[in-house]
């Protein structure tokens, strides 16, 4: 059974149909990847699914429940979390505080409890601190907990966003180019991390340009070009699909894909 079902989503920016009737499904415990050339509409699709943009067509369902048009914070409560291609960390907070913010939904203390520093509010903050520290360790950032986020490297910030999304307890995780700007070692670490996250039974949707990573890790792959879906299937099928090779791999990726194949 798929947990996330997306059907016929569309949006236009001025005259540009950035996403046009795109649908896909994603299952728990699997990585579903979205690939396509620059400007294909991958990030826009994430923004539609996560409620940042309002779709003018189509529907999103989580566990069969229609969630189309819900604002982002309601989707988060329905179990969806995401990272951002163009980092959206909180630069003035420490790495630890960034991740603690991801615990927001588990925190129950009200404003007054917070103002007066009541024991309930303090205990809750201590719990969030522990959960955040564990998530930082898991993403390999344990040693940087007290560092201001603004002082972290690009690759570290990418992982910080993953840690922050993980502590929400999400059942669906949307990752927008988590390995961008990472070296080979870091990419390998991200690979393992995503594998482990899916292994916990979470539904992972991945946008990624690194074909080796995508081919290795994905159960299903959706290929977009100019806002439209041009192919969908298992990695082997996508690799062989002539439309995909033409639209996406043809120019610069074919060699890379063949290398991954070998």
């Amino acid at each position: 059974m798929s947990l996330l079902e997306v059907s016929g989503l569309g949006i236009s920016f001025g005259g540009l149909r950035a996403v046009d009737g795109v649908g896909f499904t994603a299952r728990p415990g699997e990585v579903t990847s979205i690939i396509g050339p620059n400007g294909a509409g991958k990030t826009t699709l994430f923004n539609l699914v996560s409620g940042v943009y309002i779709a003018d067509a189509g529907a999103v369902r989580i566990a069969g429940r229609e969630v189309t048009g819900l604002p982002p914070h309601r989707l988060a409560r329905a179990g969806m979390a995401r990272t951002f291609q163009n980092l959206r960390v909180f630069p003035q907070m420490t790495a630890l505080e960034n991740v603690m913010t991801g615990c927001h939904m588990a925190e129950r203390a009200g404003l007054l409890a917070g103002l007066f520093g009541l024991p309930g509010s303090r205990a809750e903050t201590a719990r969030s601190r522990e959960a955040a520290a564990a998530a930082l360790t898991r993403t390999g950032l344990g040693a940087l907990a007290g560092r201001e986020a603004a002082a972290l490297s690009y690759g570290q910030l990418k992982r910080l966003e993953i840690a922050r999304a993980l502590v929400t307890g999400c059942s669906i995780l949307l990752l927008d180019e988590p390995a961008a700007g990472c070296n080979a070692v870091e990419t390998r670490e991200i690979d393992d991390l995503i594998h482990a996250i899916a292994g916990e039974g979470r539904t992972v949707v991945l946008i990624e340009h690194d074909m080796r990573l995508v081919m290795r890790i994905s159960a299903r792959i959706l290929v977009l070009d100019q806002g439209r879906r041009i192919a969908e299937g298992a990695p082997e099928e996508i690799r062989e699909n002539p439309r995909v090779i033409e639209a996406y791999l043809g120019a610069h990726g074919a060699a890379e894909a063949r290398a991954a194949h070998a």
């Binding site: 996560s50 940042v52 604002p71 982002p72 914070h73 988060a76 409560r77 979390a81 995401r82 951002f84 959206r88 960390v89 909180f90 630069p91 003035q92 907070m93 505080e97 603690m100 913010t101 991801g102 615990c103 927001h104 939904m105 925190e107 203390a109 009200g110 404003l111 409890a113 917070g114 103002l115 007066f116 520093g117 509010s121 809750e124 903050t125 969030s128 922050r164 999304a165 929400t168």
Partner: peptide, 25 residues
């Protein structure tokens, strides 16, 4: 106290990115 609480962290998150804050609920 407020700044160190759940609400305070949410406030400071909004300061830096309201889109990211919303994505965390």
């Amino acid at each position: 106290n407020l700044g160190q609480s759940s609400a305070g962290r949410a406030f400071r998150a909004i300061h830096d990115s309201d889109v990211a804050a919303a994505s965390l609920g």
